[in-house]
Design a protein around this nucleic acid. Structure first.
Length: 276
DNA sequence: CAAGTTACCTGACGGC
DNA sequence: TGCCGTCAGGTAACTT
């Protein structure tokens, strides 16, 4: 499900509603997630505490408590964090639930269970960086995500530009959808070897990545099958897809048929004429 | 170190 | 109707 825009939309949605709320109780399904869920630790560090911040780093939603503890939630492919009124029953695949002092419930739902949830105490701030974020590249909106950075990092690598963009230690937050869409808008073929890109092309790519992500966040993310914001609203950036999922359709720019090709094991969509 | 492969898990969809 | 194969927004642990 979620790439950076979807995680950002959830983060912003939660922030509006749960800051200042006290967690009054917790429940878990007991099902195994990709990373074992440290339920006792999560319970101890969250129940009775007050939520004082919600932020995003890479594809993680971070919930910060008044004790300084940090809860890091990764949504995997199908995960979601949503807010529900008490009359809503638990849904299939709900795995963790916090009750808040205003009677609402914050629920983590994940059908494929590729998501993960970890908790760190204030004292473990360095550990947090060392465990989850140590191999994660710069945020795409940071100054470190630059033409020079990409150009230098690409030197000596044999991978394709699309795989490079989707590698989390190159840049955080870009998955299959936004890699495809950014490359289309930059006019760069996804199968190009990274060493063949000029500085001008890297520069265009930095711009289009930022534009696409910004636009997608403004649209509330992309809802293909199941993505919903914290307050269960659909995103509509999928209306703005120019290539993703459009194999066989005509390119809006030139009428050429949009192609599909597997690159690095992932479906890649592009216009063979507009993307050189 | 880089890059390719496999594994984790459920659900939706198309073909038969 | 159902069974089967394929595919899906992600990542980490393997091997090569």
């Amino acid at each position: 499900m979620p790439e950076l825009p979807e995680v950002e939309v959830i983060t912003q949605g939660l922030r509006q509603h749960i800051i200042g709320r006290k967690i009054t109780s917790i429940w878990c399904s007991g099902k195994k997630l990709r990373v074992p869920l440290p339920f006792a630790d999560i319970s101890e560090k969250t129940v009775g505490k007050i939520i004082c911040g919600v932020t995003r780093r890479a594809k993680y939603v971070q919930i910060i408590l008044n004790t300084g503890s940090l809860l890091a939630v990764h949504l995997g492919m199908t995960g979601n964090l949503g807010l529900f009124k008490d009359e809503n029953q638990r849904a299939k695949h709900d795995h963790l639930e916090w009750e808040l002092d205003d009677g609402t419930f914050l629920r983590f739902n994940d059908s494929r269970r590729f998501g993960s949830i970890r908790i760190f105490s204030k004292e473990d701030a360095t550990t947090t960086e060392q465990t989850i974020y140590k191999n994660i590249g710069p945020e795409p909106f940071s100054e470190f995500f630059s033409t020079t950075y990409l150009y230098q990092l690409a030197k000596g690598r044999s991978t394709t530009v699309k795989q490079f963009l989707m590698t989390s230690n190159v840049v955080a937050g870009i998955g299959n959808i936004y890699a495809n869409e950014s490359l289309f808008r930059a006019g760069i073929n996804p199968a190009r070897k990274v060493t063949t890109l000029s500085k001008k092309e890297w520069s265009r790519l930095v711009d289009t990545v930022q534009q696409v992500l910004t636009h997608a966040i403004e649209c509330g993310g992309s809802t293909i099958n199941d993505f919903l914001s914290a307050s269960q609203e659909r995103g509509y950036f999928q209306m703005n897809f120019k290539v993703y999922g459009k194999a066989g359709e005509q390119c809006l720019g030139c009428d050429t048929t949009i192609a599909k090709r597997i690159i690095g094991g992932r479906a890649s969509f592009f216009c063979p004429r507009c993307q050189k």
